[in-house]
Every structure is written in structure tokens, then in C-alpha cells.
């Protein structure tokens, strides 16, 4: 049987291996995550400075800059309050700002997928390895993150924007529930289909090819990819729902109890859950995109008798 096929045993094995490898590399992953987040903050600051200085010159100093930000505030207010979310100019400005701010962090997430690749191939990694991925795949990972954001969020924005534009901000409960359900389904499906995008970029594919490959592999191995993805989502729900429900039931009086409950869950999510998800998606990508062959028996030693006869 091909090792690409789905079965309950394969799902259990995928989860077991992912969490086992995540636990083995807990320190490397934690240090890598901290390091890469710090680097991302520095890169973001540099981005801001790079954008800020030309703006300062172009807008004629501090006064011009202040007017610009006031106008930007008006545009953003317009986006959020007047139902003009479909206004292309306003939406474009928003998307651009979000993309600039988020890019370094997309690269950080992608670089962690690079660590995941190393773990899947060798059971180990080093914290400094993450910086190699950050540097070598800088633009590809940024582009992947931005495109992923657009693919996941744009349909939702269009859905809500259309509903707000037609009905207004006060949606009827039934319609609200329908849109929320559709949105939830879209998030699950689109993120599931994109599960192997970052592993594909790490494997050297271009941004668009990585999306195509991830979609292709996810559709072809739908059962195995989505059983794994839904298992991870299920775990996330189990981690998040009890504290939220507890807060709902106990109110502020139970805040300390909930706080104590949340801390180990947060640690679990950060140190085990996220690395395991990264490792699992890398592992699936390598299995699905790999070429399976029967390993040949070792033959005679590779000795040559012939020179220039």
C-alpha cells in the first residue's frame, strides 16, 4: 500500500509523529520563534523608517505628515463606518498598509516552516537555522503570506461588504447566522487547501506554483489532508472553548481560575500545537510530492576495471 493513502492509522501516525517531533525540538523551536519574531519587529521598524523618511520629504515636513495621517484617518473611518467597504481606493489603501505591517511576520511564519522541514527530514533542527530560511526565502515568504491573506479574507470581505451595502450594518439574525456559517466553512476549506503552501515555498516553488501545488495535493489527497487539518482545528477548539465558556459562566469572579487554566493551554498552543502543525503540514507535503520507489537491494561494489581501452 502506498504511504500516501489515507486511513485512521495514517491519521494517528501523522499526529503522533508531529507531536513527538515538536516535543523533541521544543527548545529549538521556541528559541527560533523568539528570534524570528524579534527580527521581524526590527524589519518592520526598518520598513516604517524606509516609508516614513520619503513621506516626510514628499509631504513637506511634520505639518504635511500630520495632515496626511488625518486624511488617512478619515479614509479608514469611512471604511469602517459608512458601509463603503467595497470602495476600491479605500480598500486598496487598507490592504496595502496591512500587507506592509504583516509581511515581516509572514516571513517569520514561513521561516518556521523551514525549521519544520529540517525536523521532518532529520528529526532535528537548530534555532539559528530559521534565519537562513528568513534570509533566503524573504520575498517568496512575504508574497505567500500576502496572497494567502487575500485568498482567505477577500471573499469574506466581499460577502460581508455586499450584505452591508444591500441591507446595512444591522443584519437580521438568520442572515447573520448564514453568513457566519459560510465564512466559517470558507475559512476551514481555504486554510485546509493552503496547508501545504509554505512547505511548497520552502521546497523552492514560486509563490503561485506553491499555491497550485498545495491545492492540487490537498484535493488529490483530500481525506488525509482534511482529516489532519480538522483534527488540529478540533484541538484548537478544545483548547479555546473551555476558558471562553468558563468566563461566560463564572464572569469576572472566575477570572483568576480561568487565567490559571489559560496559561498551560497557551503554552501548549505555542510550544507544541503550532510546531506540530508546521511539522505535520511539511511531512504531508514531502510524502505527497515525493516519488515512491522500491528500494533496490545493494549490488556488487561499484568498482571499475576499464580505463581507456
Amino acid at each position: 500500500m502506498s504511504n500516501k493513502n489515507a486511513s485512521f492509522g495514517a491519521l494517528v501516525e501523522d499526529l503522533k509523529v508531529s507531536f513527538k517531533f515538536a516535543a523533541k525540538n521544543i527548545i529549538s523551536f521556541l528559541l527560533g520563534t523568539i528570534g524570528v519574531v524579534l527580527v521581524s519587529v526590527v524589519v518592520l521598524v526598518l520598513f516604517m523608517i524606509a516609508a516614513f523618511i520619503p513621506m516626510l520629504i514628499l509631504l513637506g515636513g511634520w505639518e504635511g505628515l500630520a495632515i496626511y495621517f488625518m486624511n488617512l484617518g478619515v479614509v479608514l473611518e469611512d471604511v469602517f463606518t459608512s458601509g463603503s467597504i467595497m470602495n476600491p481606493a479605500a480598500f486598496g489603501a487598507m490592504a496595502f498598509i496591512i500587507a506592509i505591517i504583516a509581511s515581516p511576520f509572514f516571513i517569520a511564519i514561513g521561516a518556521l516552516f523551514g525549521m519544520g522541514r529540517e525536523i521532518v527530514e532529520s528529526e532535528g533542527t537548530t534555532a539559528e537555522g530559521v534565519f537562513v530560511w528568513y534570509r533566503k526565502e524573504f520575498f517568496s515568504l512575504a508574497g505567500t503570506g500576502i496572497l494567502l491573506l487575500l485568498i482567505v479574507l477577500l471573499p469574506l470581505l466581499m460577502l460581508y461588504g455586499t450584505a452591508f451595502a444591500i441591507i446595512g450594518f444591522e443584519l437580521p439574525n438568520i442572515l447573520n447566522a448564514v453568513i457566519a456559517t459560510i465564512s466559517g466553512l470558507w475559512l476551514v476549506i481555504s486554510l485546509g487547501l493552503s496547508l501545504m503552501v509554505f512547505p511548497a515555498v520552502i521546497d523552492g516553488l514560486s509563490v503561485f506554483d506553491a499555491f497550485k501545488e498545495s491545492f492540487r495535493l490537498s484535493i488529490r489527497h483530500f481525506d488525509r489532508v482534511f482529516s489532519l487539518w480538522l483534527s488540529f482545528l478540533g484541538m484548537l477548539v478544545i483548547c479555546i472553548v473551555p476558558p471562553l465558556a468558563g468566563f461566560e459562566v463564572l464572569g469576572e469572579a472566575g477570572a483568576i481560575v480561568i487565567g490559571i487554566m489559560t496559561l498551560p493551554l497557551a503554552v501548549f498552543l505555542l510550544l507544541l500545537y503550532f510546531p506540530a502543525l508546521v511539522i505535520a503540514s511539511n511531512r504531508l507535503y514531502l510524502i505527497f510530492s515525493g516519488i515512491e520507489v522500491t528500494v533496490q537491494e545493494p549490488g556488487d561494489p561499484d568498482l571499475s576495471f576499464i580505463g581507456g581501452v
Binding site: F21, V120, E121
Partner: peptide, 21 residues
Amino acid sequence: QEAGLVVQERTEQTPTGIVQR
């Protein structure tokens, strides 16, 4: 690989779950 000098030959899984390309 892009230059056509190297190819991926096979992918193997070890009993411990490592996937080697």
C-alpha cells in the same frame, strides 16, 4: 535542480516517521 543538474530520486519514510528525500 533548476539548472537540470540534480533531480529528486525518491522519498522514503523511516520507521520513526522521518521523511527523507
